[in-house]
Simulated scan of single mutants.
Amino acid sequence: MPQSEQFTAPVETGVDALGAVATSVDDVLARMRALDAALPPLDGVAVFNRVYLAVTQEVGRRIDRGRFTDPQAAITLDVRFAERYLDAVDPASADRRAPACWRPLLQFRRHPGVRPLQFALSGINAHIGHDLALAVVDACRSLGCEPVELEDEFDRVGDLLVSLEERIREELMPGPDLLQIADPLTHLLGSWSLERARDATWTAARALWALRRLPDVAEEFTDRLDTAVGFAGRMMLTPL
């Protein structure tokens, strides 16, 4: 059995909320909480899910406080964004092949040589690098608007994610600060930047929108994006 498949484990089933169709931020939060309750704490998907749950809770609070210029656009983008992740890891979809960007995390989720920070950032890489671009297109179709009309909401969600990245690294990076510079994990993940990934995602979203009347080209572009993000995620999960 290839090493990448050796530590794959099925997710527990039987949580009705996991398969629900999300129509609001509260629906998304319910699915994430159900997933959190169903998974062992050290499972790689569980590690990412806790991070994403905190982000989504903060997005919901900011929407309630009027921090978004267009609350409906923010809700639509947030829900479409979350649905892509939840559909990829939902136990009900286990018989379907997950997008390439999520396969490394699903395959290595129980690997004892992969650290929690690697799980968290690999999930963020998949979700930002691939899912967010497609979610922008999904939201534009739902709202009948152009990507530029969602740029403010995109930037505000992106700013929140970037602000959390440093906290995630600090909380999940093992060992005393003086030893971190020598830790292989520092070097493995030091070349990846959420901010750069977000910038690339906005470009990809605009390109996909421009290609919407060329479905064959759009499909090829999406497949290449998925593969590239998956390759980066696999490198991030190198056992240490």
Rank of each mutant, 00 (worst) to 15 (best):
M1Y: 13
P2R: 05
A9T: 11
P10Y: 09
V11T: 06
T13R: 13
G14H: 09
L18E: 07
L18F: 11
A20T: 15
A20V: 13
V21Y: 12
V21L: 14
D27Q: 14
D36L: 12
A38G: 01
P41I: 01
P41W: 01
A46P: 00
V47K: 05
Y52W: 08
L53K: 01
V55L: 09
V59Q: 00
R62W: 04
D64N: 12
R67I: 01
A73N: 02
A74S: 11
L77T: 03
R80P: 03
A82H: 08
V89N: 04
S93L: 10
A100S: 08
A100R: 04
P104F: 10
L105Y: 09
L106S: 05
Q107A: 10
R109N: 11
G113T: 13
G113R: 12
R115Y: 05
Q118W: 05
Q118L: 03
A120N: 02
I124R: 02
A126C: 03
V137E: 04
D138Y: 05
R141I: 12
L143D: 03
P147A: 06
V148D: 14
E149A: 15
E151Q: 15
G158Q: 08
L161V: 11
E166H: 14
E170H: 13
P174G: 13
D177S: 15
Q180C: 10
A182L: 11
E195T: 09
E195I: 11
A205K: 01
L208H: 00
L211A: 00
L214A: 15
P215S: 05
E219V: 02
T227V: 12
T227C: 12
L240N: 06
